[in-house]
Every structure is written in structure tokens, then in C-alpha cells.
């Protein structure tokens, strides 16, 4: 009995935190199903009847253009980061050479740098490369800023694999490239998952480079597009809420499916970083 009583404050705290974290989502979703009329009369109540009009309008808007841009940029950047970081980690983790430590530290320092320090030169560089105002302006900086944490994770993982892998591969006359791609890379799968998840979340939600390196709406990624919507239709609150809901949905859905992996990926990515 006493034990049960002790648990009451715990439950109260748990529920309070549930409301604190969850209520804004509930507000967002419920408002997205209202008509503008209903929102005016009672903005934050649960909708009387669900209207899908806001979502229908989104399908007619540029929303899926933004969505498509975000998918392309995120997928290309994440795949490239995995390949480049894994390759760079191989000599750092499994070969002895004089520059190995300084090079590793060079990447490590990248995690402490405020990205804004590079914003102006990257803006000018992008213009000079002729990539300004195109979605192809974005993978470069996204890859560069994802490399440090990814290299740290891969290097740590590679160091823990047994040395015999190389020795037996060398005996079979297997070169470095085949050794890496055929034997080591497949063993990296858990680290690849961590790197992919961690970076995908960061890149999917990235804002400032997208803001500076693109300007036309047709090249906007989702965060930029949402801001564009807000600028155009800020009076239509339910419409904006529908856009926010739909824009947040992909990551939340992935999260529901792969919760454990995502949580682990973020913890690993941040602590290593």
C-alpha cells in the first residue's frame, strides 16, 4: 500500500511531462483538421468534425516539390557520407602511418566548430561553382559537416574488428580495396545504421545552409518550404498546421517503426561527437 502511495507523485510527474512534450503535437494535429471558420470560433478545442480540406489543398500546392527536394538532398548526402567516411576511416583505424593521428584530430575538431563560421565562404564558393540556387548546392556542406562524427563512429568500430581479418585476406592475395569492400564494410552494418540515422535527422531538418544557398521556391527543402508557406498563408492557421503535421510525419513514422535504433543512434552519435 505504502509503495503504491509512493508511486502517485511519480505518475503525476510522468503525466505532467507527457502533457508538456505531447500537447503541442496534439494542438498541431487537431487544428490541422479544422476549417478556418471552426478555428476562429474555438482555436484549440478538439475538432467537431474532421475536415481534410487543408490536406487536399496541400496536395495541390508546392508542398510535394519541397518534400521531393528534401528526400533527394538527404538521401544523396547520407549515402555519400557513409561511403566517404567509411573509406577515410579504414586507414585511420587499421593502418599505421605518421599523419594518422593529426588527420583524425583534424576531423575531430570539426565537431566543435559553429557551422556559421563557414557560411559566408561557402556561400561565395557555391556561387563560384555555379551551384547557387540549386538543390545541388546542399550536399557538399551537408557531407562535409557530417564527416567528423561519422568518421569517429566508423574508426572506433573498425578498431574493434579482429586483426586476423586482414592477415587471412592478405594470404588469399586480396588487395586493400577488395578487403575493405568485401570483408570489412559488410561487418560495419551496425555502425552504418547509426551514422545513417544520426545524419539523416540532422540533414532532413537543416535550415541555415538551405536558406543561404537557395532562393527560388522550386529549390526549397522542406524546412524552407514550411517557412515559405508561413510567409504566404500565415492567416490560414489550420492550413499551416496541416503543412507542419505532414512535414513532421516522415521522421515521426520512421521513429515509430525503428524507435530503439534511432534512440541508440542519436545517443552514440552525440556522445562520440
Amino acid at each position: 500500500m505504502l509503495k503504491k502511495l509512493n508511486e502517485v507523485p511519480l505518475y503525476m510527474l510522468a503525466i505532467f511531462l507527457l502533457l508538456f512534450t505531447g500537447l503541442p503535437f496534439l494542438i498541431m494535429v487537431s487544428a490541422s483538421f479544422k476549417t478556418q471558420m471552426e478555428f476562429m470560433s474555438s482555436p484549440w478545442s478538439w475538432p467537431d468534425k474532421f475536415s481534410f480540406e487543408n490536406y487536399r489543398l496541400l496536395f495541390e500546392s508546392e508542398f510535394f516539390r519541397f518534400f521531393y527536394n528534401s528526400v533527394i538532398v538527404s538521401v544523396i548526402s547520407v549515402v555519400a557520407v557513409i561511403i566517404l567516411a567509411a573509406m577515410a576511416s579504414y586507414p585511420l583505424a587499421r593502418m599505421k602511418f605518421r599523419l594518422s593521428r593529426p588527420l583524425f584530430i583534424l576531423f575531430l575538431v570539426g565537431m566543435m566548430i559553429p557551422i556559421h563560421t563557414t557560411l559566408i565562404p561557402i556561400f561565395l564558393l557555391t556561387k563560384n561553382l555555379g551551384l547557387y540556387d540549386s538543390i545541388w548546392a546542399l550536399p557538399g556542406p551537408y557531407i562535409a559537416f557530417a564527416l567528423p562524427v561519422s568518421i569517429v563512429i566508423f574508426t572506433q568500430f573498425l578498431k574493434e574488428l579482429p586483426k586476423e581479418l586482414e592477415e587471412s585476406a592478405k594470404m588469399d592475395g586480396c588487395g586493400h580495396f577488395r578487403l575493405f569492400w568485401k570483408i570489412l564494410f559488410p561487418l560495419l552494418t551496425p555502425a552504418v545504421a547509426t551514422v545513417a540515422i544520426y545524419n539523416f535527422i540532422q540533414i532532413w531538418n537543416e535550415f541555415i545552409f538551405a536558406l543561404v544557398l537557395t532562393t527560388s521556391p522550386e529549390n526549397a527543402t522542406l524546412p524552407l518550404g514550411l517557412r515559405e508557406f508561413y510567409g504566404q498563408f500565415s492567416v490560414n492557421v489550420p492550413g499551416i498546421m496541416a503543412a507542419l503535421t505532414l512535414g513532421s510525419l516522415p521522421l515521426l513514422l520512421i521513429y515509430l517503426v525503428a524507435q530503439e535504433k534511432i534512440v541508440k543512434g542519436i545517443a552514440a552519435g552525440s556522445v562520440k561527437g
Binding site: L17, L18, T21, G22, P24, F25, I27, M28, I201, W204, N205, F207, L222, P223, L224, L226, R227, Y230, I240, M241, L244, G247, S248, L251, L252, Y255, L256, Q259, V263, I266
Partner: peptide, 18 residues
């Protein structure tokens, strides 16, 4: 599951919502 959700939302979306 609910506690963790705010971190997955894009900052822009959070900004507009708030």
C-alpha cells in the same frame, strides 16, 4: 515515445507552431 518526439521535429516547424 512521446517524450522524445519534440527532438525529431524540424526547428522551423517548431518555431512556426510556437
Amino acid at each position: 515515445s512521446i517524450y522524445f518526439m519534440p527532438f525529431l521535429m524540424s526547428t522551423v516547424a517548431i518555431g512556426i507552431l510556437f
